[in-house]
Amino acid sequence: MDASILLVGGDGFLATLLDRLHNLLNCTVEVASRPSEAVPLIQAQQPDLIIVQANQPGSLELCYEIKGQAKLAWIYCLLLEIPSQMLEPDLRRTWEMEARTEALEGGGDGYLWLPQKDAQGEELKPDEIAKQDRLLRSQILAGVRAVKTHRELMRTNDILSAIALSDPLTELNNRRALDWELPRQIQNAQTRSESLSLVMLDIDYFKRINDTYGHPIGDRALQLVSSRLRHNLRFRDTLFRYGGEEFVIILSNTDESEADLVARRLCRLIGEQPFMIDEGLDLTITISAGTATLRSTDDGRGGSLLKRADQNLLKAKSTGRNRVVSSVEVTTEES
C-alpha cells in the first residue's frame, strides 16, 4: 500500500502505534506529539490519513479544523484510543458508543478502541491482538480507498475543467475561461490599485480565406495566428479565443498608452510576415484591434470594459482595418 500517514499523540501512543503500523502496512509515517504541531505538517504535506490519539486534548478540534477547510477535507481522520485495560462488557459498550459518536460528530471519519490488556488486567492473547491488528489495518485501508477515490475524482475534474476552459482548435483559453478570469483580474487590479487593459483582436477578411481556400485552410490560419500571438505576449498577458476569428488579451498592470503599444506591436507582427499554410500556400494576414482600460465606473464582471474594447475594434474595422483604435485616441477625440 502506498500511503502517507501522520500520527498525532503522546510518546506512549506513538511508540505503541509505530511498531504496530510497521508490522501491518507498507507506508510512510510522520509523527506529531500534539495537535497544534500537526497543523503545519498537514498543510505542508497533506497526508492521506491522520491517526489521532482520541483522548488527547485538542484531538477533536484538529479533526474539525481539517474538515472545515476545502483543500484538506478529503484527508481521512481516524481517532484511536489505546487504553491500558479493557472495560467490563456492559460498561465498554456504553463507553465505546459514546466515544465513537463524539468522534464522528467532531469531524472524525472513524474511531477505534484498542485496549492493551483485558478486563482482568492480563496481557491480551495472541489471537485477540491479531483481531485488533486486522481491524486497525482494515480501517486504514478503508481510509486509503476513500482518499484514492477522491484523488481520482479530483484528477478527472481537473481534466474536465481544462477541457471546458480550452478551445480545441487553437488550444487557447476560451470564452468561458475569459468569463471566469476577467472578474478575478478586475478584482485584483482594484485591490492593488493597478491598471488593467484589454485588447480585442479580429482577423481581417477571414471569411474570404474560408470562401477562397476552404475551412480546413481557415482553421490552419487560425492556429498559426494564435501561435504567433501567444509567443509574442508578455508573461503577464493572458490570451483567449473569444469566438470565430476574434481574440481577447487581458493586460494586467497595463495602462492606456501601454495597451496601445502592445496592440500595435501585435498588428505589425501578424501583418509583416506571411503565414506558410503548407508548401504551396503562403497567406498574408492582418488583424484589427481595439483596446480599453479599466475605469472606476466599470462593473466587476468586465462587461462594460469588454464593450468599449469591442466598440474600438469595430471602429478599427470600419476605418480601413489593419489598425488599432485605442482608449487614448477615443478620449482625445471626445475631448
Score class of each variant (00 low, 15 high):
residue 283 L to A: 08
residue 165 L to F: 01
residue 21 L to M: 09
residue 146 A to D: 06
residue 195 S to P: 01
residue 41 L to Y: 08
residue 232 N to H: 15
residue 178 L to C: 07
residue 40 P to A: 04
residue 275 F to K: 10
residue 56 Q to F: 15
residue 43 Q to F: 01
residue 240 F to C: 03
residue 40 P to D: 02
residue 308 R to S: 07
residue 315 K to P: 00
residue 147 V to G: 02
residue 93 R to G: 03
residue 227 S to Y: 08
residue 186 I to F: 14
residue 210 N to Q: 05
residue 117 K to N: 09
residue 237 D to E: 11
residue 286 T to K: 04
residue 66 I to V: 12
residue 7 L to M: 13
residue 204 D to Y: 04
residue 41 L to F: 08
residue 261 L to H: 11
residue 5 I to A: 05
residue 103 A to P: 00
residue 13 F to W: 03
residue 122 E to D: 12
residue 61 E to F: 03
residue 268 R to F: 14
residue 214 G to L: 12
residue 50 I to F: 12
residue 217 I to V: 15
residue 113 W to V: 04
residue 45 Q to P: 00
residue 272 E to D: 15
residue 146 A to F: 07
residue 216 P to L: 14
residue 171 E to F: 05
residue 110 G to F: 06
residue 78 L to G: 08
residue 176 R to D: 10
residue 204 D to W: 08
residue 110 G to A: 13
residue 322 N to M: 05
residue 111 Y to S: 01
residue 305 L to Q: 04
residue 83 P to K: 05
residue 313 L to R: 04
residue 153 L to M: 13
residue 332 T to E: 15
residue 230 R to P: 00
residue 197 S to T: 04
residue 38 A to H: 00
residue 248 V to L: 11
residue 112 L to M: 09
residue 229 L to K: 02
residue 248 V to P: 00
residue 207 K to V: 15
residue 60 L to M: 07
residue 141 L to D: 06
residue 17 L to H: 01
residue 276 M to A: 15
residue 226 S to E: 02
residue 17 L to C: 03
residue 321 R to L: 12
residue 176 R to H: 10
residue 166 S to Y: 02
residue 134 R to T: 14
residue 18 L to G: 13
residue 1 M to G: 11
residue 76 Y to P: 00
residue 11 D to I: 09
residue 116 Q to L: 15
residue 138 S to A: 13
residue 84 S to A: 15
